[in-house]
Nucleic acid binder design. Structure first.
Lengths: 307, 307
DNA sequence: ATGTGCTATGCGTGAACGTCATGGACTTCC
DNA sequence: GGAAGTCCATGACGTTCACGCATAGCACAT
């Protein structure tokens, strides 16, 4: 069996798995069953004569041979899509930039950058997508994103150890804050002391996150009491406003917090920095994408100044 | 039906038809039946929602929509091939240049250029192919050749009217000659008068070529007597040496004509010029291909000087 | 008229690709 | 320790699709 005999379907399936990280998720995205995905992957691996995905308990990771195929597969699939667009008479997607960002970037940074772009480059079309950092990184590597805005906690390791390494540029860096009900005594000051965070009830991001519960101030010497869990920032903020508990938030959220919520820095503990990065593949960036990257940088700077 | 649902097979078949010029020839090249080719083309046209090939009595011509698809298809198929090579551990085909030339170029110009290249750029690999001008042009457009050496007779129209137009550079230009048996009285002089060509027996290229029998001096005012037909130059020259007749040859052949044959210019009639061109697509040429092109130019110059 | 190039199409067969259902390996929670 | 959850793999099955064969249609040549 020769790799030249692969089907476009198997390339598409492979890209989806590379992007989603698991067969099951890829199947859901494609409207297939997991079984079909498994077979397609088996088929493309047979054609390639090598293992393209390393099966792990938590999903699949692209191998070295897989990277070779992924690289080619994306340009092949993009080319097919471009042909499809050209044939239907649509103009080429030259001015469309695909950006992914982690959830909170969509609240402040994204809208600012897009507003600025709409004035400065009205011809540009930007398509955005919200996802977690691992998903964004996979999407970048799978070629379905041009740019990704990632959040990193200390230690600021690169988001993956794959090669080639992603190109990372820091957009902004700021301390983690806590969101406090305006009615709470803590809200009287302009900052919160870490000691005052003991014994409080917390609103966590998920019921059971692996390392360091998201939403709870890290490094507390007690087992925190999780009163609520919510993934959505709007929900979390309104839970705080309702006095249901505290939660950690990035400082940028101060500008968009609803009434009844104060966002305050924390003093006393080790500095809890969060770094926001713009990531891309180490390939030459299309002109349009470079403009969007620049707009994101400007928006980050403006936000820094405003705070 | 969406163009994204095309199969790689149909792309390959389409490329083959574009290159061969007929369904039947493409089928032969691919090891398919003509029936299969017809169906694959129907399938890809259904997917594209447009006619990609214009059916004519003498075969098929690529339409405007077809050019769009052909363009994309070649890069897609090349990409797949590249992936296949990478997977089998072979080095990328970065240094391989595919050159096509019309038959006579393989006798003098090609060998000279290749010998020079072997000394100057030993790392380069050149793959060559011999074919007629129309086939070469189609192969260029289908992306299966990087360079093509074409022969043009007056009036020197571009070899096809497709767009984008091919980039043409003249390698050399010289007069048509006649090959005369050394024993023939005509061979005594250093040239032949056109009047002396009347009543001679000729060795033609093919039994019945459409316009202007190849091998017979053009513009004679009588119906020429075709004594033999031969496509192969070596055969033709030896038929001449055996005194079986005359035939027209490009002047370059003088340097490689066997004993018993003299190659002489013709005086008296209108000048019969033949132009040798180097053709390529109007796309940026890979580094390696540019070197081969340069070598061909040098070889053409050297040949000019030598004569 | 007959022959020779083209391409299109009806028909039958076999392979390929989906779904469904099941199973094995492993982790997490109670 | 057992149950329930996460992965992925695989046997059974139906349907679709792409091939070859044979034949038809068409335009042009001799």
């Amino acid at each position: 069996m020769d790799f030249r005999d692969v089907s476009l379907t198997s390339l598409r399936v492979f890209r989806a798995v590379a992007e989603q990280g698991t067969f099951t998720a890829a199947a859901a995205e494609l409207g297939y069953t997991q079984s079909a995905v498994s077979r397609q992957i088996a088929s493309i691996e047979r054609a390639a004569g090598a293992e393209l995905l390393e099966r792990r308990r938590d999903g699949a990771r692209v191998t070295t041979a897989g990277r070779i195929v992924l690289q080619r597969a994306t340009t092949v699939l993009d080319e097919i899509d471009a042909a499809a667009r050209e044939l239907t008479g649509l103009p080429a997607r030259a001015g469309t930039v695909r950006v992914g960002w982690f959830p909170i970037a969509g609240a402040v940074l994204g809208p600012r950058a897009l507003t600025a772009l709409r004035r400065s480059d009205p011809a540009l079309t930007v398509v955005t997508r919200e996802a977690g950092t691992p998903a964004l990184v996979r999407a970048l590597r799978a070629g379905s994103l041009d740019l990704a805005v990632l959040a990193l906690a200390p230690p600021f390791r690169p988001p993956d150890a794959e090669s080639p390494a992603l190109v990372l540029r820091t957009l902004t860096e700021r301390s983690l804050c806590v969101a406090v009900p305006a009615a709470d005594p803590l809200a009287r000051g302009s900052f919160v002391d870490v000691a005052d965070l003991r014994g409080r009830r917390w609103i966590a991001g998920s019921a059971t996150a692996g390392d360091g519960l998201m939403g709870v101030w890290p490094g507390l010497d007690e087992k925190p009491e999780i009163a609520h869990t919510a993934r959505d920032w709007l929900s979390k903020l309104h839970l705080v406003a309702a006095g249901c508990g505290l939660t950690t938030v990035p400082a940028v959220l101060a500008t968009v917090a609803p009434a009844g919520v104060r966002v305050l820095p924390v003093r006393g503990g080790p500095r809890e920095q969060r770094r926001v990065l713009l990531a891309r593949l180490p390939q030459p960036l299309p002109e349009a994408a470079a403009r969007v990257a620049a707009a994101l940088h400007r928006a980050a700077l403006d936000t820094d100044v405003a705070l």
